[in-house]
Nucleic acid binder design. Structure first.
Lengths: 199, 199
DNA sequence: CAAGTTAGCAAGTAGCTACTTGCTTACAAG
DNA sequence: CTTGTAAGCAAGTAGCTACTTGCTAACTTG
């Protein structure tokens, strides 16, 4: 086993255990065992547990890929629906990690911010897209792109985080939910609805 | 000090420390110190730490009060705006506790559900209100109340949870945010907007 | 073949964890 | 005044925590 393999195995194991039980629960013993290496080896690669967790989150953020919105908006209804589906899938896959990171905000604010920085980028991109589409006359003229972005992302976020703790609140499927949310959202921002009665 | 005072102090201290550092971080030693009692006294009142945390969350849920929507909807714009303001304040006050509980879902799902049960009730109430208002012709006829409720609550939830870890995403004040969200939401569900151009 | 690197292993550090035991003190009710 | 209850305190349990030390085995590279 090459040194870089050990390092990678440790980062992967750390991310998994961190998502499952937080930084207190992800003990060096458990991480080493999950990675299949000796605990001493862990400390030869990372001086402290804190360093290891930081590196694991860093590596995770760096390798994260997300679907980008088109630079030039042409069909908000289609483009936003497709984007929302992808973003929700992304959030749902990472729900444990996100919940754990946010849950540790009080104790480790920097660590939490580190994990959340991707969503800030995505939020900015969505805001920019909405502003562009509005400027091009594809949407209503009188809405605030930042708030609309917060609304769509917040809705998807809450759905992805809340589905397993509160299934009663989400009786419809993820797929149906996104369609329903998008229907409402598109009407809110004045996009061309499928059955337009008004504009 | 009466026995019930000790019990209450322990429950209060437990809730505070649990919100700050989760069930692993809220050690019996710290809880006892925060409550101003001896650690042995803690175990005389609660056989295990688990029991104590459960009781603390139980007491919290029981004493939680929230603003109710009117049973008969008459003015959705005003009523929902007022409700949203109150609900957001409520979420924001409890953000640490909510984040921590959700962060521990993987390890303690029942404990998480216990803390989240209030929001299920609130969600049902909002859904009912929207359905009633729609049936009375105060809103558009073609939206899904469950999805709309999830959207409004999700937006407020994400705002309240995300404001301190990601201030960049919420450059506007809480008060302004709610107004912006409500403007969008009311248009989505076809409520009488303040400056109507269409219906 | 020699030298350096990397890992495993056994053991040990000091400190924290939930929880227990035995004894003492304070107070309130009969 | 006596009795029961609730609390404090000191000490101890067994086990886990991050992290260290010293030594050995395997592999790679010059």
């Amino acid at each position: 086993m090459v040194a870089s393999d050990v390092r990678e195995a440790l980062l992967k194991a750390t991310l998994k255990l961190f998502a499952e039980m937080g930084s207190r629960g992800a003990t060096t013993r458990r991480i080493a065992q999950e990675a299949g290496v000796n605990e001493v080896t862990l400390f030869r690669h990372f001086p402290t547990k804190e360093t290891l967790i930081h590196a694991a989150l860093d590596a995770f953020v760096e390798q994260t890929k997300y679907k980008r919105l088109p630079e030039v908006p042409t069909d908000p209804t289609t483009e936003l629906t497709e984007w929302a589906r992808d973003h929700h899938t992304h959030l749902h896959k990472l729900r444990s990690l996100i919940r754990t990171s946010m849950g540790e905000f009080e104790e480790h604010p920097e660590q939490c911010k580190q994990a959340m920085c991707v969503s800030i980028t995505i939020n900015n991109e969505l805001t920019g897209y909405l502003a562009d589409a509005r400027a091009r006359g594809l949407l209503a003229a009188d809405f605030e792109p930042r708030a609309a972005a917060a609304m769509l992302m917040g809705t998807l976020f809450a759905d992805a985080m809340g589905r397993d703790p509160m299934p009663e609140r989400y009786p419809y499927s993820m797929k149906d939910g996104i369609e329903l949310y998008l229907g409402l959202f598109l009407r809110a921002i004045g996009a061309r609805p499928v059955n337009s009665q008004c504009a």
